[in-house]
Structure formats: structure tokens, C-alpha cells
Simulated assay, not measured.
Amino acid sequence: MSEGLQLDLKKPLDKMTAKELRELVLKQIPQITGASGLGKDELLVQIKEVLGIGGEEGVKATPYKTKILSMKSKMRDLRTKRAETAGEGERKAKEILRRKINKLKKRTRRLAKAS
């Protein structure tokens, strides 16, 4: 639509917050009206439409979503177990639980990044 429209972006549109996107629309893209009442997803769709950037509709779902969710539930269980273990004699058990939680967090991040 607007081939001559140049935007001064400090970071990619997808990484911007809703507040930053609203500010961008109000200052640099007068074609979009009602930006103050829109959410981030709606703003992204409208900005991409005006700029002629197409292809993706919303955020893509990761194929590993069920695996990630099961790992996160396991982490919650481990955290409650760690909170229940109290006392100085249980230090080793707490350390083991902490490491397991840490490994699960790393795995979930890797899976999310892989998608």
C-alpha cells in the first residue's frame, strides 16, 4: 500500500511491546485509526498490512507445546517438593531438586527456540 513509508525502528516489530507499537502508529503511521484501543496482535496485523509485509497470521504455535507443558508441570511439582524439604540435613536433596528444575528450564527454552 505505502511503498514510500519509512519507519525508524530500533527493534523488530514482533519484539516491540504493545505500548511501543501504539506510539509508533500514532507518530509515524496515520493510516491506522483507533490504535489506542487495539491489542498487540491486532496492531501487528494492521501495521504489517499497511507496510505490505505479509505471510504470517499471528503467533505460530510450537509443535513441542504439549512436551513443554508437561515439563513445566513437572517443574511445578519439583518446586513444591523442594519447598517442603526443610532443615539443614536436607541440603543435598534440595540441591538435587534445584538442578533438576534447572535442567528442565533449559530444555523447555531449547524446545521453544527450536520451533
Rank of each mutant, 00 (worst) to 15 (best):
L5Q: 09
Q6G: 01
L7T: 00
D8V: 14
L9A: 01
L9I: 05
K10W: 13
K10P: 02
K10L: 08
K10F: 09
K11E: 11
K11L: 04
P12T: 10
P12R: 11
D14L: 04
D14M: 03
A18W: 00
R22W: 04
V25L: 04
L26F: 08
L26W: 02
K27H: 10
Q28R: 06
I29G: 04
P30M: 08
P30G: 08
P30T: 07
Q31L: 09
I32P: 06
G34A: 07
G34V: 06
G34M: 05
A35Q: 04
S36W: 10
G37I: 14
L38R: 15
L38S: 12
D41G: 08
E42H: 10
L43Q: 05
L44D: 10
L44G: 11
L51M: 12
G52R: 07
G52N: 09
I53H: 05
I53A: 03
I53S: 02
G54T: 13
G54E: 14
G54P: 03
G54S: 14
V59R: 15
V59M: 12
T62K: 04
T62D: 08
P63T: 02
P63S: 01
Y64I: 00
K65L: 06
T66G: 00
T66Q: 05
K67A: 10
K67L: 12
I68M: 06
I68N: 00
M71Y: 14
M71R: 11
K72G: 01
S73K: 15
S73R: 14
K74T: 10
M75E: 11
M75W: 06
R76M: 06
D77A: 08
D77Q: 10
L78H: 09
R79N: 12
T80H: 12
K81M: 12
R82K: 14
E84K: 12
T85K: 15
A86F: 05
G87R: 03
E88L: 13
G89M: 05
G89I: 02
G89R: 05
R91H: 03
R91L: 03
R91F: 01
K92I: 09
K92C: 03
K94Y: 02
K94A: 07
I96F: 07
R98K: 14
R98W: 09
R98H: 13
R98A: 15
K100Q: 15
K100N: 13
K103R: 15
K106H: 10
R107Y: 01
R107A: 14
T108P: 01
R109V: 09
R109Q: 14
L111M: 07
L111D: 02
A112M: 12
K113Q: 15
